[in-house]
Amino acid sequence: MKKGIIIFAVFLFWLLLVSAMVSLPPMGSPENPAYSHIVPRYLEEGVEEAGAHNIITGIILNYRGYDTMGEVTVILTALMGVLAVLGRENLLHHTSKVDESTIERSVIVKCVVRLLVPFIILFALYIILHGAESPGGGFQGGAILGASVIALTLTFGFSLTVKKLPLKYRTVFESAGPLGFFISGVIGLFCGLNFLTYIIPSVAPAYQDLIRHLLLLIIEIGIGVGGGTIIASVFLAMEKVGKE
């Protein structure tokens, strides 16, 4: 009875949404209002203005740099929230469900993970470093890095990951995202320009492109390493179980 009422209400809401969507402009036509405002400028001059062949990377790091800086702060704050609720793991007091499990882990899984993890990390680094030229970028590469740590933890146990990624390094790497933005952005301030300008005026114009590329690379690496470590830390904090 209760379910029926909910389904009916939700169906009415669906009808409302669909009736609104019929009157939207047809999907996929270049005459869409969303396509005619600022997009041509981004597509025509984005490479020269933002310094990345991948227009999306140019938008998130240059045109909307402040937005991305806030985003990086959001995931750092999320980590802080998780740690405030659950606390850091400590091998003296904590173990994990994976370690406690009495079921022998499959040899096939162990072999495959051991073989694949180096390549996964290499792929993540490629995605991070090549984000300005090809599909990818810091967040995507960071997610892959974090996934490789999770795969390792689930097959080889909690203690291995905690030992291989000691807390003193992780605390630094977790803040790499905002730190990268800070380093790259403040350079513009010191040269009398705006925050996140990526320009050093005293350098010859021929090298201006290279400098902007390097500063964007610093940010990409910061986002990637920071994001990956944050995912790993959140996972480790959730995975731990108190020792009896």
């Binding site: 969303a34 600022i38 997009v39 984005g46 995931i75």
Partner: peptide, 14 residues
Amino acid sequence: NPIPQALILTGIVV
């Protein structure tokens, strides 16, 4: 259109 994709990248992270 690149702008929705850049916006959604933010959305996914949040």
